[in-house]
Amino acid sequence: MSEIIVSLKNVGLCYKKRFSLKKRKSTTYWALQDINLEIFHGQSIGICGRNGAGKSTLLRVLAGIVSPSRGMITIAEGVRSGLLTLQSGFNPYLNGADNAILKGLYMGMKKEYIQSKMNEIIELSGLGVAFYNSIETYSSGMAARLGFAVNYFCMPDLLLIDETLSVGDKQFKQKSKLLIRELIQSNKTVVIVSHDEDALASLTSKVYTLENGILTS
């Protein structure tokens, strides 16, 4: 078996409601109860669950964005994990090129690398001349296409995808779906969360179900 890149042992995560003078009692909510999961290199995993089951929280734990409240997460050295995000990290007043560099830097890539990929980003996003206009002039579909293109070239070692992506127009949707499928079939390690079990089963090699913060296979 290939190497484990992330393992979760008895991971739980709670959110605390903030203390205020009006509501003195602070309440806690356990979004993840007791998660045990091992992800191997090159594996593609689907996690299925209803709204509010803790899917997004689990992805954030895997991405290293939040630390668990209990339990242990072990990430193999040098592994870059990241959520596939479309519009975060963009500033409306900057043009596509500046935004691509800024987002790439946020995602841990080098500025030189992103600059070297600029032509390919323009091509994949299909933005053409609009690429050099400020993002505030973009439609939300255009911004999402730029986001997808930057993500594609700044791909982390462990790619985490939230829900099925509905990006841009029909043509681009097909293109992005194809790319995601290609990624999953390649050597990339991918975790996808969705509420659609059938779609997950067709895309990934293993599907887990997440319910009330507990993961079952």
């Binding site: 290293g64 630390s67 668990p68 409240s69 339990g71 997460i73 072990t74 050295e77 841990g108 080098k110």
Partner: peptide, 26 residues
């Protein structure tokens, strides 16, 4: 609450140092 990275051999400790430097440069 532990987030830890695996580092086993001496070799990986050296590359870990380099990675640390690369991280700060980034």
């Amino acid at each position: 609450m532990i987030i830890k990275e695996n580092s086993e051999s001496e070799e990986s400790a050296i590359s870990g140092h380099q990675r640390h430097r690369a991280k700060w440069r980034h």
